[in-house]
Simulated scan of single mutants.
Amino acid sequence: MELWFTEKSNDSVGLTLLIKEHLYHKESKYQTIDVLESAYYGKVLVIDKVVMLTERDEFIYHELLTHVPLQYMENPLSALIIGGGDGGTAREVLKYRSVNRVVLVEIDEEVIETSKKFFPTLSFSFDDKRLEVVIEDGAKFVKETDEKFDLIIVDSTDPVGPGEVLFSSEFYKDCSSILKDSGVLTAQTESPFDLVYRPVIQNIYKNLKTGFKTVRMYLGSIPTYPFGLWSFAFASNRMDPLKEELKNPFIPDGLKYYNRELGRCVFNLPNFVKEIIDET
């Protein structure tokens, strides 16, 4: 008998995967964690019945979230990752030789342990001596830290449950206060093709604008995320990617998705997406 997993994006649309084996199940303090072995996408990390990543396409999300901002920075030294317990975002940031310190703040240690067990191509980043892991609420860390960073990456779950606070106006203001003068924040901001989430996206960008002078959206195509189209925010008080040139003289070898030609054009938005942002 075949086993299929379906993640419903709404009442009439979803993603369905043929599953070879249910490898792992864990009820953590904050959420339900599952690892599935799929027939096409390899191992799949599922949190609260939502696909977080698959082995086959995770590189798209992680490269877009990291290399887009890092290529606009001439000499990035430090980064703060909020969430990202699978290690994929840290893996990409740590590819930059100039980066000497990365702090990853994850509220749920079980996500990190699950990744170490089942996703070694992501979790090997936890062995890098430049990476410090803090098990704590990300919003609390941002509010209380005295450290300033060149880059903040909000690699969070959807704006529900423990991740909801990471989309608030107060959180974005706190992030702005711990960025260096020319620093950048990037964050995942859901699918603009999802009619249910359009008001949520509008609210996210409204909140971002309370903390940052410049807020831009960029897009990427991720097959296993709802509707295959995903948005990201680029926020800064000094830098506007529509007016700046790429400054980083270094680009890591072996990237599967990002290149500099792509990095210059991801901010070009379809008309229907522009209309969503203009309504904020």
Rank of each mutant, 00 (worst) to 15 (best):
E2I: 00
E2G: 04
T6G: 08
E7D: 06
S9P: 03
S12M: 12
K20D: 15
L23V: 04
H25C: 05
H25I: 02
S28K: 01
T32W: 08
T32C: 10
I33N: 02
Y41D: 14
G42M: 05
G42L: 09
K43L: 01
K43Q: 10
V46E: 06
I47L: 15
K49C: 05
M52Q: 15
M52T: 07
I60S: 08
T66W: 03
H67I: 03
V68N: 00
V68L: 15
V68W: 04
V68Q: 06
Y72T: 10
M73R: 02
P76T: 06
L77S: 13
A79G: 15
A79I: 08
A79Y: 02
I81H: 10
G83D: 00
G84I: 11
R91A: 05
R91Q: 05
V93H: 13
Y96L: 13
N100H: 07
V102P: 07
I107G: 04
T114W: 02
F118R: 01
F119R: 09
F119I: 05
P120K: 03
T121G: 00
F124G: 01
D127S: 13
E132M: 02
I135S: 05
D137R: 14
D146Y: 09
E147P: 03
D150V: 11
I152N: 02
I153Q: 05
I153N: 03
V154Q: 08
D155M: 10
D158E: 11
D158A: 12
D158K: 00
G161L: 07
V165K: 14
V165G: 04
L166N: 11
S168Y: 10
E170C: 06
F171G: 00
D174P: 01
S177C: 06
I178K: 07
D181T: 07
S182W: 07
T186K: 00
Q188F: 01
S191I: 08
Y197P: 05
Y197Q: 02
Q202Y: 02
N203S: 10
L208M: 13
K209L: 11
G211Q: 12
K213S: 14
R216I: 06
M217Q: 15
M217S: 11
M217L: 11
Y218G: 13
G220T: 10
P223V: 10
T224F: 01
Y225E: 09
Y225V: 10
G228C: 09
G228F: 02
F234L: 01
A235R: 02
N237K: 12
R238G: 12
P241D: 07
L242S: 12
K247L: 15
F250G: 09
D253P: 04
L255F: 12
N259E: 06
R264F: 11
F267V: 03
L269M: 08
P270Y: 08
V273G: 08
K274Q: 02
I276A: 03
I277Y: 12
I277L: 15
D278S: 15
